[in-house]
Design a protein around this nucleic acid. Structure first.
Lengths: 122, 122
DNA sequence: TGTTTGTATTATAGATTATAATACAAGAGA
DNA sequence: TCTCTTGTATTATAATCTATAATACAAACA
């Protein structure tokens, strides 16, 4: 579990941790059923407070990405079929596409980038 | 200039204003050369502080979306050709696509959504 | 000469973020 | 049983961020 945190970023650390784990799952670096580091281990490794990692895990849990058990630890959730996507994701996508459009990117080029990013494995 | 603000959102108001103006430009509701409301007018309309709008305008200015002049007001920038896109935009897109992927969305469906959102006019 | 423009300043209040230290219930393993 | 580890909870604290309020300023314009 290699986390790259930007302590100067406007984005809070616990959200950065959340994002990176989502990226990790999407890229296959983290597989369903795989155990995540303990909050203490990850906090140590990243040089942040235990509760900061705990907060990230609670976010991920709430969003269904992981399940935590006080006894067995934290595990990547198994997902089946095609889930409905939270409004947050659609808004995020819409904003990014708008920024590309305003930057003068034509549809074909935008879709090429989307394809590239989607297919990206690690 | 119709702003829809969510005062309960985790996203700061000045960033919501910034986002909505970017969306407005992308959708053609705001055209290059068009004058934006004054900070006071928009603040009044949205029911927020003058400086909150000013902060949004400064953000947009810094990102090149608008140009402000103390004498003539605020105007949507004209853009030519295809600009390079800030890292922020790519990261935003990457994260959204990852969330879709983990939700079980296949490439074709993701690209369909991107197409739909890109082409969306108002 | 006023008015309007974006911006700056100062003060203030509240919320959020992150840390530190400590504790707990409950399962795992010895 | 005893000990360790697990995620979580609590309390206190500090720093930062967000938003408001009131006021002011230089510059252009009618």
């Amino acid at each position: 579990m290699l986390l790259q945190l930007d302590f100067n970023s406007e984005r809070p650390i616990y959200q950065q941790i959340r994002d990176q784990i989502v990226l990790g799952i999407a890229q296959g670096a983290l597989s369903p059923g795989e155990k995540l580091p303990t909050v203490r281990a990850l906090a140590d490794e990243a040089g942040v407070n235990m509760m900061t990692v705990s907060k990230a895990y609670q976010l991920l849990k709430q969003e269904g990405y992981i399940t935590t058990d006080r006894r067995s630890g934290t595990v990547v959730s198994a997902r089946e079929g095609t889930q409905t996507v939270p409004e947050q994701t659609v808004q995020r996508l819409k904003l990014a596409l708008s920024e590309l459009r305003v930057a003068g990117w034509r549809e074909e080029r935008v879709l090429d980038l989307c394809r590239e990013l989607y297919e990206q494995e690690g």
